[in-house]
């Protein structure tokens, strides 16, 4: 099987088992630049594992993942780490901000991990914080901001490196509807404006409604609803 034409990131026949339980059992995936794809499915279905595989955090037991023409599973751990630093961005449900660092330092962290100078990194961070309307929190620590604000800081951090793929794992899971929708609006707007692809793992339909299409994962198998119909 060849990846669908024009896809930025695609996966074929992914299999991954944790012990005796198969988290992924032949899952497929593909995303184009600028596309927002929701990964849906009941909990325990393997949707987070799919995201981890796609992002190169976890190596699948078998199957291929192609990013921008490169075979991800052929890369070394440090190469994949470097790729994650430069090309990917991440937003998780919670607990991702370093509690000791101020918000602006948190946002600047990926740039600094890439070897950027502190000053430049924090300037770029501030720009993104402005776009996500949290620039007034720059001196605050994560424990001093609300959940919605913290999540926006996290989104700003995920976008600060201008990633080509943004991975969001239940980004609104810990937020109320209003905050959740605001975060989703800002996230998808920002991603669209930079033509970044967004892999959005969620179980909420209203969050998934911000996507262009959805992929359903059930029992480790994926189902691309657009292509199926």
């Amino acid at each position: 099987m060849t990846p669908p034409a024009g896809s930025l990131l695609s996966a074929e026949q992914l299999r991954k088992a944790y012990g005796p339980t198969a988290a992924l059992d032949g899952a497929e995936f593909s995303i184009h630049p600028g596309e927002v794809v929701a990964v849906m499915g009941p909990s325990g279905s393997g949707k987070s594992t799919l995201l981890h595989c796609l992002a190169g955090i976890v190596t699948p037991d078998s199957g291929t993942i192609t990013y921008n023409g490169h075979e991800l599973s052929a890369m070394s751990d440090s190469q994949r780490s470097a790729l994650r630093r430069s090309d990917f961005g991440f937003v998780f449900q919670f607990g991702q901000l370093v509690p000791e660092l101020t918000c602006v330092e948190n946002v600047a962290l990926p740039l600094r991990l890439n070897g950027g100078s502190r000053k430049e990194a924090e300037r770029a961070a501030l720009t993104w914080m402005e776009r996500l309307e949290v620039d007034d929190l720059r001196k605050k620590r994560p424990s001093e901001v609300s959940g919605g604000q913290g999540q926006r800081v996290a989104v700003a951090r995920s976008l600060v490196t201008n990633p080509r793929v943004l991975f969001a794992d239940e980004p609104t899971g810990a937020l109320d509807s209003l905050n959740g929708e605001r975060v989703m609006e800002l996230l998808t707007d920002a991603a669209r404006s930079t033509n970044a692809a967004v892999v959005l793992v969620t179980h909420e339909a209203r969050v998934a409604a911000y996507s262009d299409r959805e992929v359903v994962v059930r029992d480790g198998k994926s189902r691309d609803m657009e292509r199926a119909v």
Binding site: I57, A82, R84, R85, S86, F92, P99, L113, S158
Partner: peptide, 16 residues
């Protein structure tokens, strides 16, 4: 634990 995993996800080197 959670934070560490998140840091690794966005590409923090183990060395760091």
């Amino acid at each position: 634990r959670k934070l560490l995993s998140a840091l690794v996800a966005f590409g923090t080197r183990r060395r760091t």
